[in-house]
Amino acid sequence: MHTYIDKIREIASRLLKEEAVEMVIGYQEGTLPMISPPMSVRSAEDVEKLTWSSHCCINLANYLTDIKGKVAVFAKGCDCRSIVNHIAEGKVKREDVVIIGVPCNGMMERRTISNIFGDEIEEVVEEADGTVIVRGKGREEKYQKSDLLRQCCRVCVHKNPVLYDELVADPVAIPEDIQRYKEVEKIEAREIDKRWKFFENLISTCIRCYACRDACPTCYCPTCFVDEAQPQWVGKGDDEPDVMTFHILRAFHTAGRCTDCGACVSACPMGINMRAFTKKLEKDCLDLWDWEAGLTSDMRPALETFTPSDPEDNFK
């Protein structure tokens, strides 16, 4: 981790000194344990504020949308794919962004660690051997990092940046035995009524703060459909059909574009796993059209294209 941080600061400092970019977007140290919030650095003196940790859960591609001037951004595998998607959709020009790829071994969410540890956490230390030491008031526990990883990181097969100008470290190994869609298959195996109950239950604590939408790099509509007043597509109260409509439609809008970066889940103050919606769409895109988001900027996302060979099994 420290080698990452040193390298990140070195690159940021160089780019700013050379005036190759106006701004570097990275992560800073948080005021609480287990969170590294995004930050922007504009002068080489400030690069010491940049950091890296296993809590860089927010997707930095989100901060590139419609940005003016030349910027550098640190990007994990998923962030990188989101940037590729941005380029494909014309939200970012390739020449305006210096992508500094960060090979990633997965991120850990505050909520997961807190839930497992139980008490309030004062400090989390990650050892080089993959163990994580969690300290609370008068108590210390040791965990394997692999047990604390975010669900999206556990099933991630794109840990290494796909498009970059330079890399912070050598690419990391991708385990071969990853079952990417186990979560989706578990839901698919249930009866229809049980599935509805599952999703009803999933969103039951949603407070409609829209943190999931706002943390999502693909959610960049100037006016989101839930904010439209004429016509008003969806009610704004806490009625379940309205809340569900928001989640379904948001998921649909990300179909073929979502990189399963998990920022939505990490941002949710209520810990809702809205990936249960989006992961199914990711699986469908792969099964039906052999499409994975953010691997190439030469093609439009799956739902925006048509070929005569597209499967039509659902058509009568």
């Binding site: 995004p38 930050m39 922007s40 829209y210 939408r213 009610g235 704004k236």
Partner: peptide, 22 residues
């Protein structure tokens, strides 16, 4: 800069009182 402009802070806040009429 990092703000997502979500409504989390205002919704969890015990003193935030703003509402909308629909």
């Amino acid at each position: 800069f990092p703000c997502l402009n979500c409504g989390t802070c205002t919704y969890v806040c015990p003193t935030c009182w703003c509402f909308d009429i629909q």
